[in-house]
């Protein structure tokens, strides 16, 4: 059975553009509203990433932290997240969904139980920020058995030797962290440098779909459009925070941001 994530990349490639991936935190700013946001942006997005909020997020900058704390304060639980995915899939059956979070949430829930519920609700891929290779080998193979992609992360600090090993163990999609930063940092390296690292990865295995994330905003997205896919997270979380501050509707505001992002990589 093919994974809809692969299909999404194929489609984007046919249209000669990178796939657009968006990250929003489940339950931000409420369970209902976060589902509404997903529904509204679905048409403009190729792959939906949903953050599983954790209250000790060591790799996230202030924007995603704010969204996560807000969602937890509003009472989001792991089971609610599976419900959100399930309801979203009822609305847009073929849109791939990736959950992104920290390992303790999966560990506490139980790896097998977590994956079982991923399968039932329609999750297609997982990114676990603090479960690096080789620690993730066992869990990644459990994912594979259930045809869920375990998405390996690569960083500018990953050595060439390590790159090769991780890519060998990776599934069809890989996430490249653009720079040394937490999420939402200002892009502090040139797009040229990011792409040169990106091509190092593609050279090892050109068949893998490699997405670039961290520091991607409306300003920077165009310069990286040669990549297989681009992830925007903090910029969207920030929009939700600003909407709440200005007492505006986050659903419309987020849609507008995503629409503009999409237009920039057409």
């Amino acid at each position: 059975m093919s994974n809809p994530i692969s299909h999404a990349f194929k489609k984007a490639k046919k249209e000669n553009r990178p796939a657009l991936l968006t990250y929003t935190v489940a339950g931000d700013n409420s369970k209902k509203q976060s589902l509404e946001i997903l529904k509204s942006i679905s048409k403009k997005v190729d792959i939906i990433e949903i953050g599983v909020p954790h209250n000790t997020p060591v790799a996230d900058g202030s924007q995603i932290q704010t969204s996560s704390y807000r969602a937890i304060k509003n009472g989001i639980k792991v089971n609610d997240i599976f419900k959100i995915v399930k309801n979203f899939k009822k609305f847009d059956r073929n849109k791939p969904v990736i959950l992104m979070g920290y390992y303790n949430m999966i560990f506490r829930y139980g790896e097998n139980e977590f994956l079982k519920n991923c399968k039932i609700s329609g999750v297609n891929g997982l990114i676990v920020v603090d479960l690096p290779w080789p620690e993730n080998k066992k869990f990644a193979s459990k994912c594979k058995k259930r045809s869920i992609f375990f998405i390996q992360l690569l960083s500018p600090t990953t050595t060439q030797k390590r790159l090769k090993k991780i890519i060998k163990d990776s599934h069809e999609m890989i996430y490249f962290i653009s720079m040394l930063s937490t999420t939402g940092g200002k892009l502090k390296v040139s797009s040229k440098e990011i792409l040169s690292n990106y091509y190092k990865i593609k050279k090892i295995n050109s068949k893998k779909n490699v997405v670039i994330g961290f520091g991607i905003t409306e300003k920077t997205i165009k310069s990286l459009k040669k990549a297989d896919g681009l992830v925007v997270g903090s910029a969207i979380c920030k929009e939700i925070t600003n909407s709440i501050k200005k007492r505006q509707n986050p659903v419309t505001n987020v849609y507008n941001v995503v629409n503009r992002l999409r237009n920039k990589i057409k």
Binding site: V129, D130, P132, S155, P156, R162
Partner: peptide, 12 residues
Amino acid sequence: GGNFVPETLKKP
């Protein structure tokens, strides 16, 4: 124990 860290920290 172990090393549950973001990939970026593996090298350092």
